[in-house]
Design a binder for these strands. Sequence first.
DNA 1: CGTGGTGTTGAATGACCTCAAGACAAGTGG
DNA 2: CCACTTGTCTTGAGGTCATTCAACACCACG
Lengths: 208, 208
Amino acid sequence: MLRREGEAPRYVYLLLSGWVGASILLPGGERQIVKFHLPGDMLGTPSMCLAQAADTLTALTAVTISRVPLAAFGTVFASSPRFAAAMFLSVQRERVALMDRLAAIGRTPAIARVAALLLDVEERLRALGAAGADGFDMPLTQEQIGDHLGLTAVHVNRVFRQMVESGLVSRERQRFVLLDPARLRSMSARQQRVMTRDAGWLLGETSV
Amino acid sequence: MLRREGEAPRYVYLLLSGWVGASILLPGGERQIVKFHLPGDMLGTPSMCLAQAADTLTALTAVTISRVPLAAFGTVFASSPRFAAAMFLSVQRERVALMDRLAAIGRTPAIARVAALLLDVEERLRALGAAGADGFDMPLTQEQIGDHLGLTAVHVNRVFRQMVESGLVSRERQRFVLLDPARLRSMSARQQRVMTRDAGWLLGETSV
DNA sequence: CGTGGTGTTGAATGACCTCAAGACAAGTGG
DNA sequence: CCACTTGTCTTGAGGTCATTCAACACCACG
């Protein structure tokens, strides 16, 4: 457990290796995992605007992280407009991702959410070189997956079985192979977002 | 309709009066309303990081808005670190709000979501002076509310009736009075977030 | 060997949805 | 001023998806 929600946020974290989950605890004891973080991700930035951290950061595997004090972060932010602009856009990207997940959880059935998760994780791991033709490892319990997708662990299990039986994926413990990515994509309702290439307008290039 | 998703985002909008909904359309035709915007809100900023707008902005009532070109926005951003910092924190606040809504939709039953919406709208309208002891107007159809909460219009209607019958709220057309805010709050699972007072660390005050 | 966390499967329940019909209000054109 | 339309609200009946509860299998770990 890297940071518990409710604590005063004094750091931002850079994930160097391993998996981390950012979760919110509800009064009733239910948990919603807001995001699975992979190496390279910045963690804990949403709480920069709060007196008490909004999310709990939990290591899901062995991890190595680098801690950045908010103060140090702030001086760079003030002195380098380019850095500020890049951070700003990065947060907007996270916000768009949250909007998409909101739409998925609010409006799509369980199988579409699982499909979206598999595609998302596969894509991100592939960018890190940790996923190939031989599939990828997803070191999550089915309960954690359920807390991420708004489902119960039992139902996650049933959806997995259904996917295996219909030849969409193969699975052995926590190793997954996407056998039919096209069909997964078509049922996942996942948006294909095109990011701007480091928007010139934010960096003073008033060419437009 | 102010802006359709898929268009190239060239403006950011400032809402001066009226209600606007920001929605995402799914491939299957379902709609998720990501946020109801009230006067004073900035609209369309999530799409600043995208080549194609992620959300559709729809006027829900008669509105007046002010359009800000991204380019103009960018020059201010580059020249004023304080402005950049304030914007950055503002986006993080929106992100936290989205995380909370994700938790609510993923993990709470319909009545808790409706309660949370009523409390949220009442609080925001009160800050604008548009809600008092005599209640407030919420100019939304039940279908729009459903698209916001991940429910059907029919079910929203049933929840409203249930709330009226149990004395939680009174309702006459689109005017609501919260009769028992305490009980609404207890069932809503809504987080009480404490914002930092314009975080000093971001503005170079390295006193901490 | 136990033991605890996780995965797996069945049966029953329940929350929410779909479909459908009617009520009501506001607007439109004759 | 009155049909007629249109959109929203309302209510019922029945169905479905996901949950709850429960039992058991399967490791990994002491």
